[in-house]
């Protein structure tokens, strides 16, 4: 399966696409209670070139957590989270995590691409139903798969599966589109890796395998490939 690393099925948390990753030759490392794909290619430089052109990466095991309820924004602010003031924009936190404002009462927190942010863990612990505050955690870390699509050709690929114009000139960094991707509901957040355009895409974990296959199919004509988290970190300069 993989050389030297861990095997996903030995660990409790498993990505919905771990079999696809293993089949594609992923080298796994243990992180976040499971195995994440660190790299695919033997040649790291080649994988970086792929990621600059067009690549798909699986972030599903990295921390992400939702909050809902009518006091969500106020409560998160009190917890020191910058949640800005506009819906459908993501706000960068000091540790690199993003607070994606999905609606007036809904925020999605995603860690930095290195997965180092402790924000989700801290907030999950802070939220308590006993507090009588209407800000409730929603376990998106389990409910939503999390992929990242990177590269110059990402927008052209997305045009085959998504009706929102995601071209870099039209869809700014940290902008959010909650829309239909290959006919399933998804949250798309632009978050470039250095100077490489990149998009987080999160949606129903039960259809993760379906979308993974759709995206790989759509990527084929653009010479797309897979990227491991190590490659993504390097592009992001982390």
């Amino acid at each position: 399966m993989s050389d030297g690393g861990v095997s996903p099925a030995e660990l409790p948390r498993r990505s919905p696409v771990y079999r696809e990753l293993a089949f594609a030759g992923a080298r796994f490392v243990e992180a976040h209670g499971g195995a994440v794909a660190e790299s695919f290619a033997i040649d790291a430089a080649a994988e970086i070139r792929t990621a600059r052109r067009l690549a798909l990466a699986d972030f599903s095991l990295l921390p992400h957590l939702g909050f809902k309820g009518r006091e969500t924004v106020d409560w998160l602010r009190r917890q020191g989270v910058d949640v800005g003031d506009r819906d459908n924009l993501a706000y960068r936190q000091s540790d690199g995590a993003l607070a994606a404002r999905l609606a007036p009462r809904e925020v999605l927190l995603i860690s930095d691409v290195a997965g180092r942010s402790g924000l989700c863990k801290r907030l999950a612990a802070a939220a308590s139903i006993d507090e009588e505050i209407e800000a409730f955690p929603v376990p998106r870390g389990d409910g939503y798969f999390w992929f990242l699509v990177s590269g110059e050709r990402a927008a052209a690929m997305f045009a085959k599966v998504c009706g929102v114009d995601l071209r870099t000139g039209k869809f700014s960094e940290l902008e959010i589109a909650q829309t239909s991707v290959a006919r399933m509901n998804a949250v798309v957040v632009r978050d470039d890796l250095g100077d490489t355009p990149a998009y987080h895409i999160l949606g129903d974990v039960a259809s993760a395998g379906y979308l993974w296959a759709c995206l790989l199919d759509a990527m084929e004509e653009f010479d797309g490939g897979l990227a491991g988290l190590g490659t993504v970190r390097r592009l992001a300069g982390l």
């Binding site: 819906d87 459908n88 609606a103 009706g163 929102v164 829309t179 239909s180």
Partner: peptide, 11 residues
């Protein structure tokens, strides 16, 4: 009102 103009198929 939340997401701006979208194709009617999203509704």
């Amino acid at each position: 009102p939340l997401n701006g103009p979208r194709n009617i198929s999203e509704f």
